[in-house]
Computed example of a mutant assay.
Amino acid sequence: MSNDDLTPVTAEPPDAPFHTTGTDHVTVWGSNAEDTIAFYRDLLGMPLVLRQPNLDDPSQTHLFFDTGDGRILTFFVSDDRPSARGQRPGVGAVHHLCFSVDPEEYEGIMEALEAAGHGYNVFDRGVFHSIYTRDNNGLVIELSSDKYEIPDGRKGEVLAAAQRLREADGADFAQDRHMEGALEELGLPVVKHDLPDASAGTGVN
């Protein structure tokens, strides 16, 4: 019997330096925008709620879909990548996993990662604020907090409104003014969390 078999299986939170609060989004290396939208929006019925450059590589497009409960599935796509069937590295592979965290635990999370020997980067991504690190396999893990309070089930609606305001503004990606405008437009309170200052981590404006 391995040590893993002795680990208790329980729904109770473990004794850990912090606890995630849920899955925020999963991002996948996709093929091209046309085929991705045809499948996820037109076939599976997921609204396309945000489209902007991949902030790490603006030559690619970042598509955000509302999976139906406010949780988001996103894809990095490029017109020069054909769709392919069958699991393989590259198209269809997971780029990173993102988990929601409580904004009040943000500083403690960074301290815990550092104490555990995990390097990290912090970025202000416009619609959310993120800590990036890697797991034991080298997979990129994002620990994300919404910059603004968004009621359960309303995230896709807020992002879609921010997308429209972003386009009207001519901005390359959604920023604070678009999120605040979206919340106000939808009659939701504008409550911004106290998160550390950080860059967007990109050269696009």
Results as ranks from 00 to 15, higher is better:
H95R: 13
S144V: 10
G170R: 05
G181S: 05
T23E: 02
L113H: 01
E107M: 04
L143R: 10
F18P: 04
R81A: 09
E105P: 01
H95A: 14
G108F: 00
P151N: 00
S2P: 14
F76Y: 14
H62M: 10
V94W: 00
V204S: 01
P8M: 08
S78T: 08
L97N: 07
K192N: 11
L44T: 04
R166A: 14
G119F: 11
V190C: 13
V28C: 12
V91Y: 07
R164Y: 02
K192V: 12
M46S: 04
G170L: 06
P89H: 02
G201C: 12
E149Q: 04
S145K: 07
V204R: 00
L139Y: 09
G92W: 10
E157V: 14
E185Q: 15
G187V: 13
E34N: 09
E107N: 12
Q175W: 05
D57K: 09
A112H: 00
L139F: 07
T36K: 07
V158Y: 08
H193N: 14
W29M: 01
S100F: 00
V28K: 08
Q163A: 13
E12Y: 06
F75T: 10
D135Y: 01
R164T: 13
D57M: 08
Y132C: 01
T27V: 15
G68A: 14
R71M: 07
D35P: 11
D35Q: 14
S59Q: 14
G181F: 02
H25C: 05
S144T: 13
